[in-house]
Amino acid sequence: MLNFPETVNEAVAGIRDGSTVMIGGFGNAGQPFELIDALMDCGARDLTVVNNNAGQGDQGLAVLIKEGRVKKMICSFPRQSDSWHFDAKFRAGEIELELVPQGNLAERIRAAGAGIGGFFTPTGYGTMLAEGKETRILDGRGQVFETAIHADVALIKALTADGKGNLVYRKTARNFGPIMAAAAKHTIVQVSRIVPTGDLDPETIVTPGIYVNSIVKVA
């Protein structure tokens, strides 16, 4: 049942210790900072976080990692010039890393939302990221078996929602939003505006409301 919490804190209140949380965003574009701050405040820990990166600077996901709330990161590109909080935790052996090629990350998330248990892909074949994984020759190419990534919760950011939970995004901030919304059991979306049902052109809706559980408007 779709709901519209008044605050981000109310929206994330149900997130439990040990949850797998998908967090949208590529770098800072599309990163739901207000929801992440609320996740910090709610105190949940031992989280497995799925995001393309592992936090930048001193905000959002980086703070969650700094404060020791994240047990494991599943991501494609943790190391950046300003990923110092992740770097420190990783070097201290205080955070687990599952490094996934970016396209495999996206497709494994998509697979979860589409009810697909796994798939074969040429990406990573013959590299150390395929070590220990099943391989086959398909269509004349070596391919690696990759499994779906499911999540308890997705925290994503969109531009506009309507009363049915339909979503429209903005430019490259769309990135992981639509596939994470479909992959998680419970999807929480922060938006800049909520419009009356019927105001969004059905032809332009990117994420249909069936994938969305909670919508909260942030300033």
Binding site: S76, F77, P78, R79, Q80, F86, D87, F90, R91, L97, L99, V100, P101, Q102, G103, N104, T123, G124, T127, L129
Partner: peptide
Amino acid sequence: AIPAVGGAMD
């Protein structure tokens, strides 16, 4: 080194 692969393999 902290490994980071991004989209290079794809």
